[in-house]
Design a protein around this nucleic acid. Structure first.
Length: 567
RNA sequence: UGUCCUGUGGUGUAAUUGGCAACACGUCUGACUCUGGAUCAGAAGAGUCCAGGUUCGAGCCCUGGCAGGACAACCA
């Protein structure tokens, strides 16, 4: 481990490049040692794992430097935004374990100040009203390689601009009739400096300000100013805003009256393979019913991951592990899966559940007898204690745990072999009962009464231990197995193929008849379990007292699968 | 024929004023185990996009290339 990393709460924390910048600033005495960040989502969709990275970065950075973080909704476009999203975003940030205290803000809080600032720019000859339509303005902007040309309205008088802007505000014009532009430089090599539009007319009611306004500031005209007014020191955003920074700084230059100025720093957004992350595409999946809502457990949304069984701790650990840089990359989902396994391994209650049941009859076991077997709740944490599991003559085991003609490295049950039933007995397969089509319907075994609890007094060993559930003393449950939503590593990375073409048709498998040991009788949604040998499962909100529903969060690592695949 | 940003094992990150390229995931061995999990021990895998230069010494500095990304919404 290098000196640039420390270990905290079992997670290695790297001093990323933003922290290095802050360290240097602090050393130079900037901002009086103050660190103040903000998380600024637009309330136009649900948060996803990429936002989680940003949340952890912004809140985590402030925590590290004993600073503060604001939650600010960037709500400058009423046509896309809604309070539904505001609420879900607040819920998700809290769930992740962060709190903004009393510092909840909206860009719309600043509409008056923003308007006044625009008026000031007009008065200083730094902004003008342009009557041209969108296409004309766009054409005049030039291209990235060709300079733009000036608007014929660029040199209107201050008085005329003021008058027109007031009338824009008063609603005298229709949408698209005119816009307010900053007067900067139409020949700048940076497109964003070519007289950017800062106010446009939108006759759409706003989810917070109602119909008070019919002109709304653009992102570039709201974000930096909001940062400034809130005293933000570090405005951390993703790489695509890099080219906006000169404009961000230009507005701050017009505004600042002291040494203080917020600093925009960009980092690479998170990309995960086998999924899509853009709000537009996620919305499309929801609207076209490719998934069952924003919180579908296959979605990379925070609410989806939550329902899938991810814990806030695991997501925070993941965010820490992937680091913060300016290099665009793609993170392998196996790293996310590692993070949840690591967390749940330490904490999850173990339980036995059979999701693809086949009946086993222990022919020499007394009919009607029920024995309570003591089972360990979590071998990683003895403090979690033990529980009792009922054992009976008829049980279920996993269909996959039996093979009539086993290959070499198959250690599980097959005719004539002896295995251990976890916490119960050694059993030996004596017979296989099939239906007329040849499907196995029942397996007959005999048990060794001397092996009660799972060990034989003569010291003989078995190669395998199977999980099992009593066929009479159990809880019947529905289990939902999830696989990756897309079959392609980069579903939206193909020029001529729509990302939906790569949707995995087998991403959801519903198993309506699973049997779980009675311990799960009174579970609550979002309780986490390890079904031994299978994976981690969480209780879905669809559960009823009569029939719990479990979502498989992630499988356990499975060597047998590998051996099978590699022949 | 522009501006800005970025190039380090398969993946993600690290490397203090230049000093034997480190860590994690993944992969592969082996040990242990009442989960083919976990744990433990070990291995393979890059010579840092390329070419020059400075230097005793360059992933770090300089020059020139190459490659990838962002930018032409009245979106954020």
């Amino acid at each position: 481990m290098s000196e640039n990393t420390i270990e905290k709460e079992g997670v290695v924390k790297t001093n990323n490049f933003i922290h290095q910048i802050i360290d240097e600033e602090l050393k130079a005495g900037k901002n009086g040692g103050r660190v103040h960040t903000r998380f600024p989502p637009e309330p136009n969709g649900y948060l996803h794992i990429g936002h989680a990275k940003s949340i952890c970065l912004n809140f985590g950075t402030a925590q590290k430097y004993n600073g503060l973080t604001n939650l600010r909704f960037d709500d400058t476009n009423p046509s896309k935004e809604d309070t539904e999203y505001v609420e879900s975003i607040m819920e998700d940030v809290h769930w992740l374990g962060f709190d903004w205290g009393d510092r909840l803000y909206y860009a719309s809080d600043y509409f008056d100040q923003l308007f006044d600032f625009a008026v000031r720019l007009i008065q200083e000859g730094k902004a003008y009203v342009d009557d041209q339509d969108a296409e004309t303005i766009s054409a005049q902007k030039g291209t990235p390689t060709r300079p733009g040309t000036e608007s014929p309205y660029r040199n209107r008088s201050v008085e005329e601009n003021l008058d027109l802007f007031m009338r824009m505000k008063a609603g005298e014009f229709n949408e698209g009739d005119c816009v307010l532009r900053a007067k900067i430089d139409m020949t700048s090599p940076n497109m964003h400096m070519r007289d950017p539009i800062i106010y446009r007319i939108m006759k759409t009611p706003h989810h917070r300000t109602g119909d008070k306004w019919c002109i709304y500031p653009m992102y570039d005209f709201a974000h930096g100013q909001s940062d400034y007014w809130e005293g933000i020191t570090h405005s951390i955003c993703t790489l695509e805003f890099e080219v906006h920074r000169p404009l961000y700084d230009w507005f701050i230059d017009q505004l600042k009256d002291s040494d203080y100025r917020p600093r925009q720093i960009e980092f690479a957004r998170l990309n995960l393979n086998y999924t899509v992350m853009s709000k537009r595409k996620l919305l499309e999946l929801v609207k076209n019913n490719h998934v069952n809502g924003w919180d579908d457990p296959r979605m990379p949304t925070i609410c989806g991951l939550r329902r899938r069984g991810y814990t806030p701790e695991s997501i925070r650990a993941f965010a820490e592990r992937i680091g913060v840089t300016k290099t665009d990359g793609v993170i392998d989902v196996s790293l996310l899966e590692y993070s949840i396994r690591e967390d749940l391994n330490k904490r999850a209650q173990r339980v036995m559940g059979v999701i693809d049941p086949v009946k086993v009859v222990i022919t020499n076991y007394p009919e009607g007898q029920v024995e309570q077997m003591e089972a360990i709740n979590n071998p990683e944490d003895p403090a979690m204690g033990t529980r009792m599991v009922p054992f009976t003559r008829e049980i279920y085991i996993e269909r996959e745990d039996f093979m009539e003609n086993p290959p070499k490295k198959f250690f599980r049950l097959s005719p004539g072999t002896e295995v251990r039933l976890r916490y119960a007995y050694f059993v030996t397969c004596t017979d296989v009962i099939k239906d007329p089509e040849g499907h196995i319907v029942e397996i007959h075994c005999t048990y060794d009464p001397a092996s009660r609890g799972g060990n034989s007094p003569d010291g003989r060993k078995v190669k395998s231990t199977l999980h099992w559930v009593s066929a009479t003393e159990n809880v019947k449950a529905e289990v939902r197995l999830y696989d990756r939503l897309f079959n392609d590593e980069e579903p939206d990375g193909h020029k001529d193929i729509d990302f939906k073409e790569f949707l995995n048709p087998d991403s959801l498998k519903i198993l309506p008849e699973c049997y779980i040991e009675p311990f799960v009788k009174n579970v609550k949604p979002l309780d986490h379990f390890q079904f031994e040998r299978l994976g981690y499962f969480t209780v879905d909100p669809d559960s009823t007292p009569e029939k719990p529903v479990f979502n498989r969060t992630v499988q356990l690592k499975d060597n047998w699968q590998k051996i099978k695949q590699n022949g």
